[in-house]
């Protein structure tokens, strides 16, 4: 065999989502609460392999396995479909009360049921911990005549409504545009694309006047000057882009708009198991790998645990419903 054993093992294990943790160790989380996983733990990812949330779940899995945070093997299970609805539905239907199942949740899984009443809502799961918030920035093309957000805002306000075309890469981008145009008091014309990548491509090709998107996808373009960031949708500037002001700084009253990503367990899981998972996830959140991942993503670290997370989600739900004009 020319294939060395190690490389082959890499290939095989690689294709394997089954990551076996070593046996015979105790964690402090185990000591804290009375419960430990009783069999293989299933991490359900309600999205297809390859997206941002899938990657986050895989990083969480990697940290859990490498730092030996649980005494059982961890199996990753992608249940993609319907903006997270299929995965949530799967957990709600066939993993009810199962403390050995954890599921990745994010803003999309909260927005889907607002738009599609058929989809299961997040009340079907028990939120455990939030890890991070994705941010939004206002971008124009590098050769745009607008050098600052102020110039752009003045021009939007001066022209008739819906004159400006902004590309979007999904529902969350459309919501960000709604936030922005409500603050302006003028409608922007959103041209909807299927992904952040397509949205950016349309901006680079000069097919739209501007866009609002996650900073991650634009970092390389920013560095080369192909696109220009004009404003930040959060309270503080980014350390990676110290020159880009927040929209609040330039006097535009936009509410903070960020997308969260975290972990939940099925509904009605034993409180001891909930406590156990909070302990594990706090360790995941504190690990250098997670901090590096969030920094690489130009996102905001936001560890929010347990009841606080539930309250945070309720507030987000209200914000989303307001933006989508779908009251509860």
């Amino acid at each position: 065999m020319t294939l060395s054993r190690r490389d082959f093992a890499l290939g095989a294990a690689a294709s394997a989502g089954l990551m076996t943790g070593g046996a015979g160790f105790l964690t402090s989380a185990f000591a804290q609460s009375g419960w430990v996983p009783t069999r293989d733990v299933e991490l359900v990812i309600p999205f297809a392999a390859g997206g941002g949330s899938d990657l986050l779940a895989r990083i969480v899995g990697k940290i859990i396995v490498e730092e030996k945070l649980i005494p059982q093997p961890l199996v990753l299970n992608n249940r993609p479909g319907g903006g997270g609805a299929v995965g949530i539905g799967y957990v709600a239907a066939s993993r009810r009360k199962d403390p050995n199942t954890i599921i990745l949740i994010n803003g999309t899984t909260q927005i889907t049921p607002i738009l599609n009443p058929a989809a299961r809502t997040l009340t079907e799961v028990q939120p455990i911990m939030n890890f991070m918030l994705d941010d939004f920035l206002l971008f124009v093309s590098g050769d745009s005549k607008y050098k600052t957000a102020q110039e752009l805002i003045d021009d939007i306000k001066a022209k008739p409504t819906k004159t400006f075309n902004f590309s979007t890469g999904g529902t969350t981008d459309i919501m960000a545009i709604t936030v922005f145009s409500r603050a302006l008091g003028k409608d922007i014309n959103p041209v909807n694309f299927n992904s952040g990548g397509e949205s950016m491509t349309a901006l680079l090709g000069g097919h739209v006047d501007g866009t609002i998107g996650n900073p991650l996808e634009f970092m390389g373009q920013l560095a080369s000057g192909k696109v220009r960031a004009l404003g930040v949708f959060r309270d503080t500037r980014f350390s990676a882009m110290p020159d880009v002001p927040t929209l609040k700084e330039i006097g535009l009253d936009v509410p903070n708009f960020q997308m969260w990503r975290g972990i939940a367990v099925p509904k009605d899981v034993d409180p001891a198991a909930q406590l156990y998972w909070q302990g594990v996830m706090e360790k995941v959140s504190a690990s250098p790998t997670m901090k590096k991942y969030i920094a690489d993503n130009v996102a905001t670290e936001a560890p929010i645990v347990g009841a606080e997370f539930v309250a945070f989600l309720a507030a987000q739900e209200k914000l989303y419903r307001g933006l989508l004009a779908k009251p509860a």
Partner: peptide, 14 residues
């Protein structure tokens, strides 16, 4: 099941 680790529903002993 083994190489690609697709969670095929196996016999339901779990």
């Amino acid at each position: 099941v083994h190489w690609l680790s697709i969670p095929l529903p196996l016999v339901t002993w779990d």
